[in-house]
């Protein structure tokens, strides 16, 4: 069972439908016991950094997510959920993030002829060919965002070219982030969710 974190942040049902499609059952929850007993945890998110962190704090979910990382339960952040995994966010002010990954969330720089938000399909370039998510190399995935992760290259599995290089898949230990929407990226996205399923299965094996 995958726990999808419920913190009132937009439409998460499509993430759950895609999980069902790749054979992962999921529940939407903000309950600490349900989250910590799950085989994997997904932090979805659409919206703005500050209010999203406020909502996690209001529901006392920050220490629960820290415990998830401590126990090495595979944690996948999607879109804003990925951005929250970093140390600091600079969307409408400065906000402290979860700090599971090194780096900060900054605005996509303006460039003549390129629109912000980046909205649409962009082509991934893999920097870590040995990663379980390397299958995304050369594939297009669907992005909707105005901010991106400025982070050390060691954690960048893949990225896309826009007005700057934008990390699209980041990973460190049991923590993974995807800037695009795998649940909206047809086969390329579903394949990444299957790769995450592989992580979940390995975690279940080690736990048992």
């Amino acid at each position: 069972m995958i726990a999808v974190i419920d913190y009132d942040t937009g439409n998460v049902k499509n993430v759950m439908k895609a999980l069902t499609y790749v054979g992962l059952e999921s529940i939407l929850t903000d309950d600490a016991d349900e989250i910590l007993s799950a085989d994997g945890v997904i932090l979805p998110g659409v919206g703005s950094f500050g209010p999203a962190m406020d909502e996690l704090n209001k529901r006392d979910l920050v220490p629960v997510l820290q415990e998830v990382v401590q126990r090495k339960i595979p944690l996948l952040g999607i879109c804003l959920g990925m951005q929250l995994l970093f140390e600091t966010g600079y969307e409408f002010g400065q906000h402290q993030g979860l700090g599971f990954l090194p780096g900060k969330i900054v605005e996509i720089p303006a460039k003549e002829g390129l629109k912000v938000p980046e909205m649409g399909w962009n082509q991934n370039e893999v920097l870590q060919p040995a990663s379980r998510f390397a299958g995304v190399d050369g594939k297009f995935t669907y992005f909707v965002h105005s901010f991106y992760a400025d982070c050390p290259q060691e954690i960048v599995v893949a990225g896309v070219q826009y007005s700057t290089f934008i990390p699209s898949v980041v990973s460190q230990g049991s923590v993974v982030g995807m800037q695009f929407h795998p649940e909206k990226s047809t086969d390329a996205g579903l394949d990444l969710l299957k790769a995450y399923k592989g992580m979940v299965e390995e975690y279940v094996d080690t736990r048992n």
């Binding site: 049902k13 439908k17 499609y21 669907y142 909206k184 990226s185 047809t186 996205g189």
Partner: peptide, 8 residues
Amino acid sequence: VSSQVFMP
């Protein structure tokens, strides 16, 4: 549709 088709 959204249970079978994964695009915007």
